[in-house]
């Protein structure tokens, strides 16, 4: 039965969809796929070991952690906050646009901030709400919309620019997976082809955020 080989795909989809432990799910998918393909247990272990070693490059981003740890414990967040704090007297849309720019640039430099926790909740959301309610108090619905849009902007910046960083885990995963699948794709080329999406999303969201301003009495 050839189709049995697809058991790994089924395990991954169900395991992730049902929020089972991700590592256990992936290892189970690896073992199951190997076993149904007719490998002996020894052959399978050898294949897993070799494949894991061949893909060590994906984890090369661990090398960047000591430096990031040092700057983080010495006020990286504070420094970023003081830059964001300089955003004053702007409309909500303009605040979002500036934050998105900062988020995309820092992401491209490999600075992964916990945007929602460190910036959206304590800074961007209150700033945008204050900016929108200068002339008229906000309705509950408007407040909720601002919160949602602020959170959305953090996700836009994070997702569409993270692969521009050459040592990002996603970039390395792509390069290594393509290699495993028998087609070479260097990290630098992946970075290159990740740039258009980051630029295009900025342009689109820029107008999307400016449009957002129109519902407020500014």
């Amino acid at each position: 039965m050839e189709y049995l080989k697809l058991i790994g795909i089924v395990i991954i989809i169900l395991g992730f969809a049902f929020h089972l432990d991700t590592i256990a799910v992936v290892v189970a998918a690896i073992v199951a796929t190997g076993l149904v393909s007719g490998m002996s247990f020894m052959q399978l272990l050898t294949l897993i070991g070799k494949s894991f070693m061949d893909n060590r490059m994906v984890s090369i981003f661990f090398l960047t952690l000591p430096m990031i740890g040092v700057v983080q414990s010495h006020g990286l967040k504070e420094a970023a906050v003081s830059i964001v704090n300089k955003i004053k007297k702007l409309s909500p849309g303009k605040i979002f646009n500036l934050y998105l720019l900062i988020r995309e640039v820092t992401c491209a430099l490999g600075i992964s901030l916990q945007g929602q926790v460190q910036f959206i909740a304590p800074l961007i959301n209150p700033m945008a709400q204050a900016a929108a309610s200068v002339k008229k108090p906000l309705t509950k619905k408007q407040t909720d919309l601002i919160k949602a849009r602020a959170a959305a902007n953090d996700n836009f910046g994070n997702f569409f620019s993270q692969n521009i960083f050459i040592a990002a885990s996603g970039t390395l995963l792509m390069s290594s997976t393509m290699e495993s699948l028998g087609h070479s794709a260097t990290p630098i080329n992946i970075v290159l082809y990740s740039i258009p999406s980051a630029v295009i999303v900025y342009i689109i969201v820029y107008f999307y955020n400016r449009q957002f301003d129109k519902q407020f009495d500014l």
Binding site: I23, I30, T33, I48, S51, F52, S59, L173, S180, L181
Partner: peptide, 25 residues
């Protein structure tokens, strides 16, 4: 464990290739 997930997923990709999953799909 999130730190090692990408490498494990790449390993999964390699095992899929060895098993010929791509041809079946």
């Amino acid at each position: 464990t999130a730190g090692i997930l990408p490498q494990l997923l790449a390993t999964l990709g390699a095992v899929f290739t060895a098993a010929g999953v791509g041809q079946v799909t």
